[in-house]
Design a protein around this nucleic acid. Structure first.
Lengths: 197, 197
DNA sequence: ATAATTTTATAATGGAAACTACAAAAAATA
DNA sequence: TATTTTTTGTAGTTTCCATTATAAAATTAT
């Protein structure tokens, strides 16, 4: 269960598990965003003191990169499962938007996509870190579309990505699951015709 | 040209025009967002000292409300001109999205909609101020649709608003005019069928 | 001119942010 | 048991933030 068990070197042992700390801090950053969460809030939530925090993560940005990395593996949309080469492209993209709507719906105060929201924060380095993950996801979508609809790949990818940004923003603004799903489906209805041209 | 000319009371005269100051500060807040702009940056850009700022605007939030008010009158989308009772609803909403795409395209570093971006800042009061303007705009759109398509008004308004949030976010993220326009048109293509149901 | 009024410039103030110096504490090794 | 290593807790530091106290300057009214 513990992935960062330090082969137990000598020194005084840690009183907290960094992986658990990352999971806990994820909730904070997802719920309120990188800018609005202070290191003191994190250390308080974790029950540790600043030096322990900095020795484990190096900086606020260091924690954030670990959070993003973990998020990509556990909470992010499973693109590989949704974008299937054996199903119609439009159908897969509809499933993608629907999955986004479901995930983004407020779930204990943490609405929207943490990566998408991260691309809009004020700290330049944190923003770029989040943008890298977002860019990778968009590239995957683009490549999936291009395999069968190369001419429309750019435009449809932009549309899907824009819709996802909108869904994330509206989820944060208070839209509920039903509203997000209806919007996702309405958006999806434009994709089939666009790919047929 | 000057709207705040103080009927020239007695005291020492102002060395700056508050209305001009609001216009100048608008660029800063639009380009970088409420959170990221500090009062010292504003006073420096205006060439004034903090006491002059606070005597004229009361607080950072006070300036922001004046900025939002001005923006609504000059830079915001002219809903009354675009949502015409004598043209098909779908056509008007397509024009609305296209107008948004054009306005949001980066224009000297200030991309996206200032109100939309303002609804996502960390300061609670500033966020609520921006949300009020955004809500008013969405209500206007909803009422326009409801007049002829009451059954679909909620859903289509949500879709249009979500698309506008996405366009604003993508404009800030670097999408150019062509990309934004193509996305706006693709989104618009879903509206006609949705209203026909 | 003198008084009243308002804005100005200088220089703080208090608070919160990210981060760190330092020494005591807790473990492994020798 | 003594040494080495790492983490811990306390208590800072520095920097930036929004905001303000104070008194001099510039204007109108008397």
């Amino acid at each position: 269960m513990e992935t960062t068990k330090n082969t137990r070197g000598r020194g005084r042992p840690r009183r907290f598990d960094p992986d658990e700390a990352v999971a806990t801090a994820t909730q904070l950053f997802h719920a309120r965003g990188y800018d609005a969460v202070s290191v003191s809030e994190v250390t308080e939530a974790l029950g540790i003191n600043p030096p322990s925090f900095y020795s484990a993560f190096g900086s606020k940005l260091g924690l954030y990169t670990r959070i993003l990395d973990r998020y990509a593996g556990t909470d992010a949309i499973p693109l590989a499962d949704i974008l299937r080469p054996d199903r119609p492209v439009a159908e897969c993209l509809a499933a993608l938007l629907e999955d986004a709507a479901r995930r983004y719906a407020a779930d204990g105060g943490a609405a929207g996509c943490m990566v998408v929201e991260g691309t809009r924060c004020s700290d330049a380095e944190a923003r770029e870190a989040a943008r890298a993950y977002n860019l990778a996801a968009e590239e995957a979508i683009r490549a999936f579309i291009a395999a069968r609809h190369p001419r429309q790949a750019e435009q449809v990818t932009d549309f899907v990505a824009t819709t996802m940004f909108g869904l994330s923003a509206k989820a944060r603004g208070g839209h509920g699951l039903d509203q997000l799903l209806a919007t996702a489906r309405l958006a999806a209805s434009a994709i089939g015709p666009a790919l047929a041209e």
